[in-house]
Amino acid sequence: MRIEIRFAGFGGQGIIKSGIIVAAAACIHGGKNAVQTQSYGPESRGGACKSEVVIAEEDIDFPKVVEPDVLIVMSQHAYNEYVDDVKSGGIIIMDPDMVPHEKNLKKVRVFRIPATKIADELGRRIVANIAMLGAFVAITNMVDEKSVIESIKANIPKGTEQLNLAAFEKGYEYGKTLLKS
């Protein structure tokens, strides 16, 4: 089974890092095949940014995402650009504070995670992407929670573990709550 996940937002939100964490979790910590690719503009901060992950039991030939099973989106621009690509029956996980204008979507399930708010409450907006990851794991169960935690630890700067894991936890809980409701 080939799973396609797309993260999108703007540069500086940790979009590319999110993709790397999920792909490494699936691959190194989860024993599957995974590949992460990316596209970004010339700006280090603020430009459109996209990170794609393909996970499969079998060898992965084409490494890019064609029709995402999951879109995790953190900016209005990215939402407008990619929302229509999502597979019928797929999942959109979005930060409603970053995407004020939504389309009326029929064939997908939409989950709204106030990740930027969660991160602000923790004192560092920079971990909003990790809160989104927590929600992604809780909602989709596509990647094992423990593997993702291991992968977060391996891919963040030393000394920021507590903050990042707290953000992951908050996002995870929020996602679980949404699933129940």
Binding site: I20, A23, A24, C27, A34, V35, Q36, P63
Partner: peptide, 9 residues
């Protein structure tokens, strides 16, 4: 650019 920036095992 893709093989250069792509992450894989």
């Amino acid at each position: 650019e893709i093989v250069g920036h792509m992450w894989e095992k």
